[in-house]
Design a protein around this nucleic acid. Structure first.
Lengths: 235, 235
DNA sequence: CGATTGTTTGAAAACAGTCAACGGACGTGG
DNA sequence: CCACGTCCGTTGACTGTTTTCAAACAATCG
């Protein structure tokens, strides 16, 4: 079903009720997408917003020679791409990782939405800010953290973000990423990701198999990652 | 003097006239800062906006153990930190690289400014978008480009951004960064930055000395960097 | 000048990437 | 139901890039 977060535990977000209102107003169209399909391609006109209702997606950029970097993950309830002001083209693409349900908001209708859905503009702006803060934290990771630290940081971040939208079961959560996804996100080779994960498992920090992740020792993991959660603006 | 860019060649920006209007309205205070001083620290309350009038600055994040990553450069005319909606704390710091002149806009007065300075909100939003796009391109660099490609990309980007605000003399521009700045921005060690620059000089791609940069062969440099300029939204 | 900061150099070591191969899990179609 | 192919995870050996350490040198500034 719709998995948007509760207003109470988070900075401003769109509630499921908001989403219904948006859709009924005809200002957004809800889509279903298969796994591993581009939802928006680089160079496409920027939609006013993409709201992910169910599933996981990622933002990525490719180099001309084919190397790919994932620049962010989009989790249920996330809103992306406030693009109205630029009216430009997407500088990156968004691809589904699992099956997804999502809404695309038409740029021409943002003004009407802003008027009819209280908190709509605020939710978009808040999400933009958090997305930018996550990107900066990833820059810190890619630039300064070593492989194990980087991996630990990413796992803690994803678990925390999922927890914030109620998609965890204690220390466990769904984890649809394959090792080559983790490689594209961390800037490591797939082989090195494999070895790094094995190290984390050997040290009894995580369990990871069958598309499920369990964090066994959150304290030690955060310490390894030098994880400072303020950037997520949660809690 | 004031070095803001012309509206004509760029996405929406604040003009020098706008800045004067903002300052006269008492909604922002203009500051002068020495080189290598924090203008805003991590954890500080987010100002509504920082407008850099003169000089270079950078945004950076530190790990608890002291490693530092520069997550972006702030050049004359850049506007940062639309923070009103979050009312949160800074997730990163901003430090001057050279002597600087800048304005800080009071969060309480953004609404008034939005009304009295046409294009104020648009300028802030557009700048936020471009800053986020640059961060994504840097993620691609740190994750996928090797040292020489990374350095080439950064030099091309900085020259292009300076050119857009009229701060270049053909292929030459001021370049106040020291090698340890380049190291903190590219995620390389200072020693490796040194060797990488020497390689670029030996290949007659750049000249770099005495705080001046000259790009000798822009085409070859862009090719090495696999530079795709769309993300900057210039030209 | 002397002190400080920034640049350059060499050698060794650590870290991460590449290549190649194998095995298991899964799904599809025969 | 089995055979096959594909995707994903795993392993080993080797290579290459980047870091670290240490020292010397150059430039800059009181």
């Amino acid at each position: 079903m719709i998995c948007l977060s509760l207003q109470s535990t988070l900075p401003v977000r769109l509630s499921p009720v908001d989403c219904l209102a948006i859709e009924r107003a005809g200002a957004a169209v809800a889509f279903s997408g298969a796994a591993r399909v581009d939802l928006i391609r680089e160079g496409d006109p920027t939609p006013s917003a993409l709201v992910l209702l169910e599933g996981w997606a990622c933002r990525y950029k490719d180099l001309p020679d084919g190397r790919r970097q994932i620049v962010g993950f989009v989790l249920p309830g996330d809103v992306s791409n406030l693009g109205k002001q630029l009216a430009g083209a997407m500088d990156h693409a968004i691809q589904s990782i699992t099956q997804v349900r999502y809404m695309l908001v038409n740029p021409e209708q943002t003004d009407a939405l802003a008027a009819s859905v209280p908190g709509f503009v605020e939710a978009l702006l808040a999400q933009e800010q958090i997305t930018a803060a996550i990107q900066r934290e990833w820059l810190l990771s890619l630039g300064q953290r070593r492989a194990d630290e980087r991996m630990a940081h990413l796992l803690v971040e994803l678990h925390l973000r999922l927890h914030a939208v109620g998609l965890t079961d204690r220390a466990t959560c769904d984890f649809p990423l394959v090792q080559s996804d983790l490689a594209a996100a961390t800037g490591l080779s797939a082989v090195h990701v494999n070895r790094t994960l094995q190290q984390l498992r050997r040290d009894e920090l995580i369990e990871l198999s069958g598309k499920r992740l369990t964090i066994l020792d959150i304290d030690r993991l955060r310490e390894i990652a030098q994880f400072e959660g303020r950037y997520l603006q949660l809690a």
